[in-house]
């Protein structure tokens, strides 16, 4: 639509990209050097890069165990979100008497910060006997209100005639969701997967309270724990930051084209 100035635009975007990437570089640089990091001025390039900080982290923290815990919780959250949110969103596309009330309830639930409800939430989890279990860790994350509305919007964008035709053919509601709505709402699914993954992967307060056993800790907890406990070997701290971020970044880079393209293109079609 607009022509001209591609160089100016590239220049601006390159500066923006540099700002976005610099923190990554700075932390990585610190992770692979051994200089006294409190010395001034810092060096721009790593001097004598070495991998030993990573080795230290590997042996100080049960990294594979934390990774496994994080993966399990995230997978549960992703499956929960994709399935439960689709169900709820489908229900919301129907007309029923209490619908206004339900929507209002969901919208106001969105406004309750989870951190502020942690003690009652903990007591409830204790009551149903899920403390220190994967299910207990994942349960509050199994359904997300924002994602329900994303599904709802996608379902509503599916041409009404298609659903009607399916219903005329005598398809059950389950089948309508599975065979008509979901295949047409791929971007919504992708968004659900990614957001559920990000939110569960990063959740910090809840696992902190709910896990009792060191074997149940997830990566963010490992990171926070490392922060206070190994602070005298700060190079190792940044090595650990790199190790914690790597899996998430890898998954994101592999999924991002589907995610971004799906989201933008899919939305235009609707």
């Amino acid at each position: 639509m607009r022509r001209g100035f591609p160089w100016a635009r590239h220049a601006v975007l390159i500066v923006v990209s540099a700002i976005m990437l610099l923190p990554f570089y700075w932390v990585f640089k610190t992770a692979i050097t051994n200089e006294n990091i409190y010395a001034f001025p810092p060096r721009l390039l790593p001097q004598d890069p070495h991998p030993y900080n990573f080795v230290d982290v590997w042996y100080l923290i049960p990294f594979p165990r934390y990774l496994l815990n994080s993966v399990i919780v995230s997978v549960m959250a992703v499956i929960g979100n994709v399935v439960l949110n689709a169900m709820a969103a489908y229900a919301l596309t129907q007309n029923f008497r209490a619908k206004k009330l339900v929507v209002l309830l969901l919208l106001s639930c969105m406004l309750i910060p989870f951190q502020a409800t942690i003690i009652p939430a903990y007591l409830i989890t204790a009551r149903i006997g899920l403390l220190n279990t994967y299910l207990g860790l994942a349960l509050p994350l199994l359904s997300t209100i924002v994602c329900i509305f994303i599904y709802k919007a996608a379902f509503e964008a599916v041409p009404r005639s298609l659903v009607e035709a399916a219903r005329m053919d005598g398809l059950s509601e389950w089948r309508i969701i599975a065979h008509v709505l979901l295949p047409l709402s791929r971007p919504a699914i992708a968004t659900n997967v990614i957001l559920a993954f990000i939110w569960s992967w990063n959740s910090f307060m809840w696992p902190l309270i709910v896990t009792r056993d060191a074997n149940m800790q997830t990566l963010p907890l490992g990171l926070a724990r490392f922060l206070s406990y190994m602070e005298d070997t700060t190079g190792a701290l940044y090595a650990f930051v790199c190790m914690v971020l790597a899996p998430g970044i890898l998954v994101f880079l592999m999924a991002q084209s589907a995610f971004i393209r799906g989201l933008t293109h899919g939305a235009t079609k609707g």
Binding site: A126, N132, L135
Partner: peptide, 21 residues
């Protein structure tokens, strides 16, 4: 995870059972 599953399926119906610890 199997333990978790077992625990969950055993506990969920009886939601008011005593705390797990």
């Amino acid at each position: 995870s199997r333990r978790t599953l077992l625990k969950a399926s055993a506990v969920m119906p009886a939601a008011l059972a005593a705390p797990a610890i």
